[in-house]
Amino acid sequence: MRTIKKIHKAEYRPIADLITYSPMPTGSIQMIDPFLFLNHHGPQKYPPNNNGLPFGPHPHRGMETVTFILDGDIAHKDSGGHKSVIESGGVQWMTAGSGLIHAEVSSEKFKKEGGDLEILQLWINLPAKYKMTEPKYFGFQKDQIPAISLDEGRIKGQVVSGKLEETAGAFNTFTDVNLATLNFEEGAKLELSIPSEHNIFFYVIKGEFEVNGNPVKALNLAEFNNDDEKLVIEARAESILLFGHAKPFDEPVVARGPFVMNSMEEIDQAYSDFQAGKMGKWSE
């Protein structure tokens, strides 16, 4: 069985009135190549007439954002002309590539009525050859994402990218990144074979798992060694898992603010290009 190198507890980092846990990067882990960053917002209940999510217009270059809307919604808009409101169970995949400006706020309906909110945003690196690719955005609602049922229906999930068992994911991606969200009933069990050269991304959103004999609780990220293919996951309670794996890029990573490149010179260029308006213009 594949062994666990370390379990990392998410750090509590609220953003205004938004409950936020950050599993990565923290003081104990910088990244799990090519997975760069994860923020877990909520769960919480917003009252009527709220201000919604606080993520107004900001730029990105050199990476991708994958946003999982577990509860609530996100109104997306970017300088490439893409607009959408993705609701509970939906997923957004944005390839920043050469650069764009986007905003992620709550819909007018959510701000007026309030409601439950829980959202995860994962940043995935792009290899050097794709860092300056044309930006892209896709937002899929829950019913557009392939569903999967395992262990006689005791595990239900969504295959977001790549493959899980024989189910292909919703998004076509530049790199071979496999991502899924999985809901386990207590006692449900899943055995997987993951290529040993792939890095595993294993974040417990809710509940508790036993993974290859090790307990991993909610708001914890398990970092694995690359020493075996076998993974045995058993839920000790009703649980939700964000699960991924990918072959590492093994390239230099320089991240400053919203930009992720391979050198400091490229970061400086990104800031210059943004200030010069080369990542698009923002209009309300």
Results as ranks from 00 to 15, higher is better:
11 E>D: 11
11 E>M: 02
13 R>H: 12
22 S>N: 13
24 M>C: 07
30 Q>P: 07
36 L>A: 00
42 G>T: 06
43 P>I: 05
44 Q>W: 10
52 G>M: 07
53 L>M: 11
59 P>T: 11
63 M>P: 02
77 K>H: 13
79 S>W: 09
84 S>D: 15
86 I>Y: 04
90 G>P: 09
92 Q>I: 01
94 M>S: 01
99 G>T: 06
106 S>V: 10
106 S>G: 09
111 K>P: 11
118 E>I: 04
122 L>G: 12
127 P>I: 01
135 P>E: 02
141 Q>A: 11
142 K>Q: 15
146 P>S: 03
149 S>E: 15
150 L>W: 05
158 Q>S: 15
172 N>S: 14
183 N>L: 12
193 S>W: 05
199 N>C: 01
199 N>Q: 10
205 I>N: 03
212 N>Y: 06
214 N>R: 14
217 K>V: 08
221 L>G: 04
223 E>T: 11
225 N>Y: 15
230 K>H: 14
231 L>F: 11
232 V>K: 12
233 I>T: 14
234 E>D: 03
235 A>W: 07
235 A>V: 11
235 A>Q: 04
240 I>F: 02
254 V>L: 03
260 V>G: 09
262 N>I: 00
263 S>P: 04
263 S>C: 05
270 A>N: 05
273 D>V: 04
279 M>P: 07
281 K>G: 14
283 S>C: 10
